[in-house]
Structure formats: structure tokens, C-alpha cells
Design a protein around this nucleic acid. Structure first.
Lengths: 166, 166
DNA sequence: AAGTGTTACGTTATAATATAACATAAATAT
DNA sequence: ATATTTATGTTATATTATAACGTAACACTT
């Protein structure tokens, strides 16, 4: 099981992990002959900075501060669209929010575990879930093309705190 | 595997199946001491009438026609909220749309197979997927509370047509 | 280096989805 | 009958997302 849940839920050198994400992104841009502009980079950085999914208008605010100029919604949505296309970020449909993808390039299932308490979201790529979904689709004669899998509950920390306070 | 995909994708006595859904809904209301008002019933009926998920504003239009009066958004959203609470309908997050639940009461996974071509959505309750999701959550120390599972692709009919035309 | 096509961004307006707040009416309980 | 709860009507507005069109930056060719 490919997972970043440890990463998300534990203290770590986050600056480093953002930097790694940007490096991966730049590599991918070279590969795909796409341009990593300042706006796009800033959005990617913001999404990585927060382990919580951010909405487009949260991004707009933070982007305006970061770049110190007015940013209109289309600018944000364009950057989001670009990053989504490259697989560098994901959209979490249940939240209308966006988050950095910890393993772009790799073919994975986009399964998210989202904490109802603190809002953190961990992505998990789980091969056997994918296989099972494929099998279920086959049985139903359904041609599977893409999927949205979002689990809601309590992350380890919040569950721990919740238990302690009982 | 509990499924309504045959039901959805094949011709059947749909009037009868709507009626059955309404009967189940009324029973549930009695059980929960909830009121099935004309607006709520109309929304449930509309959602059952269409095997495609309907958006709130599509419902608003159809509701206005059906009840022959002006309907404001809050009215629609209130009915939706009520039906969601009772588990009589589901919200499909990726589509911002709503659909009747074929097996209310039963504890199930809310897995949808949604056709990218015709828009139909079939709900499937698949015990082993649920188990696997539970196991994956346990391993990650994540306390699972609810889930959104939406598969996109081609329904049997659309896949068949697609293949034929090649 | 100048011209040309493409790609990205700025700007304004608006569409689509959803909810807040408060008034009225209908149903239920006492 | 009256009080209480529950549902609906109504107006306004919040939130999320996109259309349309103009301008600027880039990158390729000559």
C-alpha cells in the first residue's frame, strides 16, 4: 500500500517535502513541455504548504498575499486546471477543495482519508482496492475510466485525543 | 453484491418501481415519526423518475412544473436535506447531484457507477469493498465514519454502442 | 532582431450551487 | 382553544466556477 498518511500525520521537515514536490513538478513540466509559471508554482506551493485541502477562494486570498497583487478567480482556476492536468494535485469533490498529490506519475487510485475533526487529508494508493473496484466493474459490465474515493473519519491524532478525553 | 445496475440499465416497469420506492419511504417515515409532505414526496418521485442524478436547480424547475407554483431554492434544498437524512436519496459529490437510493435501511457502501456518456448512475453495495476499505482504514489508524465512492466510465449500453461503432 | 503564432494572464461579468435569516402557515400536542 | 413544534414562503446573499474578450509574455522561424 502506497501511502503518505505517516507523512501527513507526523512531524517532519515540511519545507523539504514542499521542495521535493516542486522539483518533481518541474521535472514533469520539462517532460511534458509545459511551463511552470510563478502563479502555478505559487499555487502548488500553497497546496503543499497546507496538508489540508484548500478551496479555490482560500487559494485566491493566499495567492494575493504571496504575490502581493490582486488575483481574480479565473487566474486561480487556470492554475488549478493546469496542475490537475499534470496530475500534480487532486480535487476532492466532497469538499470542493484541492490538495497536492504526493505521488504524481504513478498510476494510483486517489483514495483519500479525510479527518472530520482537523480537516487533514492523506492520500493512499491501495492496489487491492483498485483491483476489487475493477472486478466489481467488470462483473457489472461497467467500463471503468476514473474514480473518486473519499473516506471521512478521524485521523490517528484526532482519534487519540478523542479517546483520551473520554 | 447488492446491485441495482440491472434495474437501472434495462427496461422495466418503472412506474411500479417508483411506487415501491414511495411505499418504502412512507414506511420509513412512520417508523421515524417523520412527515412525508407533498414537496418532499414530489422531490423523491422526481429523483426516482430519472435514473440520472438531478441537480438542485433541475429539481427546482421540475418541481415548479409538477406542483404548478414558484419554488425557491431553499424549498428544494430542504426537501433534499430531509430525504438525505432518512437515507432515501444520496448526494453524488462529483456531480453536485442527487439520486434515489434503491435500498434504504440497509447498511451499504454508496458505491456509484456513473456513465460518462448517458449520465445514468447505478448504485452498488459491495460488501467486500467495504471490508477492504475498513481494513485499509484500520491499518492507517484511521477511524472510518463515512465514504464517497464514485466510479466513472461507460454503462453496459453505452459501451456496447461504442464498440459496435468501431 | 523582427515578425508570427501560441500560450498564459488580466479583467469584467455572470453562471451554477448552496445557505442565512426571518416571516408565515400548518400540524401536533397539551 | 392554545401553545408548541414543524414545515414552508420569501428575500437576500454566500460560495464555487466559468465565459468572453483583450493584452502581454514567450518561443519559434527566418
Amino acid at each position: 500500500m502506497l501511502t503518505n498518511s505517516r507523512l501527513v500525520h507526523q512531524t517532519h521537515d515540511h519545507g523539504r517535502c514542499i521542495k521535493a514536490a516542486l522539483t518533481r513538478a518541474l521535472d514533469l513540466c520539462v517532460e511534458r513541455k509545459a511551463r511552470m509559471t510563478p502563479t502555478r508554482e505559487a499555487v502548488l506551493r500553497l497546496l503543499w504548504q497546507s496538508h489540508q485541502p484548500l478551496g479555490a477562494y482560500q487559494l485566491q486570498d493566499q495567492l494575493a498575499t504571496l504575490l502581493d497583487k490582486k488575483i481574480a478567480p479565473p487566474t486561480v482556476y487556470r492554475a488549478i486546471e493546469f496542475l490537475l492536468q499534470l496530475g500534480l494535485i487532486h480535487r476532492i469533490a466532497s469538499l470542493n477543495a484541492y490538495i497536492g498529490c504526493p505521488f504524481p506519475n504513478s498510476d494510483h487510485s486517489n483514495l483519500f482519508m479525510i479527518c472530520n475533526n482537523c480537516g487533514s487529508a492523506a492520500e493512499v494508493a491501495h492496489a487491492s482496492i483498485n483491483e476489487l473496484l475493477q472486478t466489481a466493474s467488470d462483473k457489472a459490465n461497467f467500463t471503468l475510466q476514473s474514480q473518486t474515493l473519499e473516506l471521512f473519519g478521524l485521523c490517528p491524532q484526532c482519534a487519540y485525543i478523542e479517546n483520551k478525553s473520554k
